[in-house]
C-alpha cells in the first residue's frame, strides 16, 4: 500500500517533473496532474509496474473549470491487490481540448471517454469509437459546460419546454 506522495516519487523519477506534478493543496487527498500527451504512458506504467499494480479504473470524469478557461479529466484508479488508490488529472485549454485516450490501457475507459466527450467536449486522441453516448449523435453543444445554452429546436421539436 502506497500513499500518493510515494507514488508521485516513482512517477517523477520515471517521467520527469515536466510530465507529472503533485498537487498537495487539495483538502481531501493529494492528486497528480499529468500532461495530456503522456497520460497513456503514465497510466500504462501505473498498470504494469509491479509495485504499483493499478488494475482497476474506478471512474473517469470530465469537468469544466470556467474560471481558468480549461477543461479537465479526472481519473480515479485503484489497485485491488495492493489496495491503494490514486487521483490523476489532465487539464487542457478550452479552445484545444485534446487528451490521449487510455482505452488501450483499461477497456472500461471506452464508454467513460465517450461520455466525457458528449458532456464536456474533450476529444480523446486514439479512441476507436469517438461518438456521443447519451445525447443523440446530432445534438449541438456539450451540456455539462458551465456556459452551455440548450439549442432551441432539435429536428423541428422545441427543446426547452
Amino acid at each position: 500500500m502506497k500513499n500518493p506522495e510515494e507514488i508521485y516519487a516513482i512517477l517523477k523519477e520515471k517521467f520527469g517533473e515536466e510530465k507529472v506534478e503533485l498537487k498537495e493543496d487539495a483538502k481531501v487527498v493529494p492528486w497528480i496532474v499529468a500532461a495530456p500527451d503522456s497520460i497513456k504512458e503514465v497510466t500504462k506504467f501505473l498498470r504494469d509496474d509491479d509495485g504499483l499494480d493499478f488494475d482497476y479504473l474506478m471512474c473517469l470524469s470530465g469537468v469544466h473549470y470556467p474560471k481558468d478557461n480549461s477543461l479537465g479529466v479526472t481519473y480515479h484508479v485503484n489497485s485491488t491487490r495492493k489496495k491503494h488508490s490514486l487521483t490523476l488529472k489532465c487539464i487542457v485549454p478550452e479552445d484545444n481540448p485534446h487528451v490521449q485516450s487510455i482505452e488501450s490501457v483499461w477497456k472500461t475507459a471506452n464508454w467513460h471517454e465517450r461520455e466525457v466527450y458528449d458532456m464536456v467536449g474533450i476529444m480523446f486522441d486514439g479512441h476507436p469509437d469517438m461518438r456521443r453516448i447519451l445525447c443523440p449523435d446530432d445534438w449541438e453543444g456539450h451540456p455539462l459546460r458551465k456556459d452551455y445554452k440548450v439549442q432551441e429546436y432539435y429536428r423541428g421539436m422545441k427543446v426547452p419546454y
Partner: peptide, 10 residues
C-alpha cells in the same frame, strides 16, 4: 466473462 477481462472493464 473471464476474471481478467472483468477487471479490465472495471
Amino acid at each position: 466473462l473471464p476474471p481478467e477481462v472483468a477487471l479490465n472493464y472495471a
